[in-house]
Design a binder for these strands. Structure first.
Length: 282
DNA sequence: GTCCAGGATCGGG
DNA sequence: CCCGATCATGGA
């Protein structure tokens, strides 16, 4: 276990921000997630202090980067246009959210699934896919300040190889419906090396965008989500039905992302979280 | 039962 | 380039 003092960090808000589908709230002070083939629990131990159920090495090598802890969100907050009252409110409300750097393949498949579905429903499918083709992860025994994990075992998100091996019938049992062929092709392309995560990571925004939208079942919105949530391309601004509604209601249908050249995607996430959670949910 | 969901594809104008 | 129809299922 490690304890860290971190400001502008709120795992519960992150879990409810809709950017990741495998991070869950246990109670108001505890969250758990499966990523990078591991289980992690985070316990709030003070105003700005958190316990992570991992070693110092693991924290530095994996989670520091995963939770975007090297970025100064205080500075980002300060740079928000003072005249933009909606965005000011959204940022204050969502303060603590960070843009995760999730795994590329998992994010790609998850957002392919996401089209025309609700978040709870996406979560169910991602969970089922992991259960039928991901590696088992045994829940650790944790002591205070942690609590017992929700389940006794978890499943890593599958590798491209193992997902590509699923039959169409097996895939459809996960509830992905007509997106099954999209998923199958994406899995084959990552498995064969036609799409290579490390190569993609080296390319510029426009080239990466072209490569992603070139995939079967990946359009404008999903490509931007993949770029934002797994490639740390924080200038990308995915527009879904929620964001479009916000733009229509508060921005005359259009948001000028040029005001936030490197952080538009972070603004997007504040808006999305605020609009979805300020009244009720889902 | 009814409605809509973190959209994309396809064909046609 | 833009438009409309269509897509399979779950969850409320």
């Amino acid at each position: 276990m490690v304890i860290k003092q971190i400001s502008f960090f709120d795992p519960v808000k992150i879990a409810r921000s809709g950017q990741a589908f495998r991070i869950q709230v246990i109670d108001s002070d505890h969250t758990e997630l499966v990523a990078k083939g591991r289980y992690l629990q985070i316990a709030r131990t003070g105003e700005d202090t958190f316990a992570f159920s991992c070693s110092e090495d693991e924290f530095q090598n994996i989670w520091y980067n995963y939770f975007d802890l090297g970025r100064d969100y205080r500075e980002i907050s300060k740079r928000i246009d003072k005249k933009d009252k909606y965005l000011q409110r959204a940022e204050e409300y969502g303060r603590g959210i960070r843009i995760l750097k999730q795994e590329v393949f998992e994010t790609t498949i998850s957002y392919i699934i996401s089209q025309r579905r609700s978040i709870p429903s996406i979560t169910t499918s991602v969970e089922k896919i992991s259960r039928i083709s991901g590696k088992v992860i045994k829940a650790p025994k944790l002591k205070s300040p942690f609590v017992a994990p929700i389940h006794s075992e978890y499943y890593a998100f599958p590798s491209p190889d193992s997902l590509a091996r699923l039959s169409t019938e097996e895939l459809k049992e996960t509830g992905v419906g007509y997106r099954a062929p999209y998923i199958a092709e994406a899995a084959r392309d990552f498995a064969s090396g036609k799409l290579d995560e490390k190569e993609l990571a080296r390319t510029g925004d426009e080239e990466l965008y072209k490569a992603l939208t070139g995939m079967y079942g990946v359009g404008t919105k999903v490509a931007n989500c993949i770029m934002l949530f797994s490639f740390a391309r924080t200038s990308r601004f995915p527009i879904d039905v929620w964001i479009q509604r916000i733009l229509d209601n508060y921005y005359e249908g259009h948001f000028d992302t040029s005001s936030y050249p490197d952080t538009a995607g972070i603004m997007q996430q504040f808006m999305f979280y605020y609009e979805r959670t300020k009244d009720i949910h889902n």
